[in-house]
């Protein structure tokens, strides 16, 4: 679980933060524009655009330097030098935070194999250590949301509360059973089955691709733990009490089953019972 200190840092980072991907027009704007915009919103006042403040003025830690090396090897072609983004290829990563790195690289979505509507989940290319280095680099580059430490992020989660939150915030895209669903024009919400605690947490925090951001003010870390508990313990690791779940696709597979299993079996029986001519 996060300490208070972590959480405050996370909040501050988020205020400045930007999510992983954004539309072309906004890519070249600096991190601080977003920081200021956020501050302006909070204050309810508008001021002029401020010049960029570069985060990498401060010296980088060793881990981050390793990360930078990795970045320059595998990511630079799309995300550009110093992760500033490349028009038409990859968004700027300044301010997306290590949460975003952990989600995108940890679930194998990045590096992408080719440009398509949505990056699919793949076996990760980097080791957990390398992902941490990359994350540290991006974090030190522009700040942004960070995950609390630990693998198990749902220890004390309340299933019932998590279920309620899941249905109101997640089920519309990921479906009641967590199997995912289609979005407009070829995009989709992925299945939650293979997702780890950290990946689910990171996704809520960073809002990857078209997923909305669920910051800690909207869904507190405790509530996030509840949701993860519901997903992991009930949806993913609770056996279905009624037999094979038919993929939990709802009535469409049930309808298929009644014809392919029920009707087919019974028609074969009628063929056996009665005459065929």
């Amino acid at each position: 679980m996060t300490s208070d200190n972590d959480r405050r840092r996370g909040l501050f980072a988020r205020l400045r933060g930007r999510p992983a991907a954004r539309s072309r027009g906004r890519r070249r704007l600096g991190a601080a524009v977003r920081l200021l915009a956020a501050l302006m919103l909070a204050g309810g006042a508008y001021t002029a655009f401020a010049p960029s403040v570069q985060a990498q003025d401060t010296p980088m830690s060793g881990v981050a330097a390793d990360g930078k090396a990795l970045f320059n090897e595998s990511c630079v072609s799309c995300h550009g030098r110093n992760a500033q983004g490349v028009e038409g290829r990859g968004p700027s990563l300044v301010g997306v935070g290590s949460a975003s790195v952990e989600f995108q690289v940890g679930s194998g979505r990045m590096p992408m194999v080719r440009q398509e509507a949505q990056a699919p989940r793949k076996p990760p290319v980097f080791t957990p250590d390398e992902i941490r280095q990359l994350g540290q680099y991006i974090q030190e580059l522009g700040g942004g949301p960070e995950l609390p430490p630990g693998e198990d992020l749902h220890e004390d989660g309340n299933l019932a509360a998590g279920g309620e939150l899941f249905r109101i915030n997640c089920a519309q895209c990921h479906a009641f059973g967590g199997g995912g669903g289609a979005l407009s024009s070829g995009k989709y919400a992925p299945t939650l089955k293979p997702a780890s605690d950290r990946q689910i947490y990171a996704a809520m925090l960073s809002g990857p691709q078209n997923m909305p951001v669920f910051g800690d003010n909207q869904i507190t870390p405790e509530q996030k733990a509840d949701i993860i508990a519901y997903i992991q313990e009930n949806l993913n690791h609770n056996q279905d009490p009624g037999g094979f779940n038919l993929g939990r696709y709802g009535p469409s597979t049930e309808g298929l089953a009644i014809f392919l299993v029920g009707i087919v079996a019974l028609v074969f029986t009628t063929l056996w019972i009665a005459g065929k001519s």
């Binding site: 988020r14 933060g17 915009a37 956020a38 919103l41 909070a42 109101i168 910051g215 003010n217 909207q218």
Partner: peptide, 18 residues
Amino acid sequence: EDGRPIRPADVSAGGQIT
């Protein structure tokens, strides 16, 4: 959904809430 009122800071940019 739990009855608490909402401040602007509660929803991050790119976020939504019922």
